[in-house]
Amino acid sequence: MSDSPARATIRRLLRHRLFVTGLALFLIVLVLAALAPWITTVDPTKLSIRAKFKPPSMDFVFGTDNLGRSLWSRTVWGARLSVEIGVAVVVLNAIFGTLVGAISGYFRWADAPLMRINDALMAFPAILLAIGITAVLGPSTENVILALAVVYIPRTARIVRASVLVLREMEYVQAAVAAGAGHARILRTHVIPNALAPLIVQLSFLFAYAVLTEATLSFLGLGAVPPTPTWGNIMAEGRQYMIEAPWIITIPGVLLMITVMGLNLLGDGLRDVLDPRLRLQA
């Protein structure tokens, strides 16, 4: 009888086939990233000119690149970096996107100024803005995270704001005001928790975008500095040897695809379960 909504939601998610598939795919990448120091034996930056362009074999599961570095080590460590960046961007978005969205949706006076800044940032194509920011700040992991946060926080804020605009008019919010609750308390207990469902869905897609955009940036040479391996810079280097050594570009590409597809399926599942109305529109 008294089954909490959270537990009921988890049960429904685990019965959702797309969600479970997506979760499984994403878990592959997560496990690789988490276990990187233990499942790789070769330093991903260790050069070995004699072993260059080795196709996948028993010695090198994923083969080696033009400088004889183990692609297994490089892609696994690259996965770690992608996941780290994804998590950082999602966390920053969850915090600042919620903050900006909740404030501008709840306090009428804050809405116009905050949303104009938002609009200005959203007017730039995501990738262009990210390239611009990393180009100015210089290529590094931290700067990529910062750039992706700046690019995506306005989008997250919009989604939170949209929910908050509806929630602030709910009768239980009015009832809480009438019972003497302050703004901070109302936001914390009534508004933000009810805005979480669409936010969680958004954040799962955002993780995918962040990983993809990070790969793009490092493909363009604006991500983490080589020799640090990222999927983007492995692919950038492999591009020149696409005919002779197709595995160099293919392996990180496939992992990137698995990540993005897994997260998208996971997000679709979350959306179906948490926010069923959106399904009809999609």
Binding site: P5, M170, E171, Y172, Q174, A175, A178, A179, T189, H190, P193, N194
Partner: peptide
């Protein structure tokens, strides 16, 4: 104060 709509006057979560 109590309001008109008991259906929406309680926070569902």
């Amino acid at each position: 104060m109590i309001f008109q709509e008991p259906m929406t006057s309680l926070n569902p979560i």
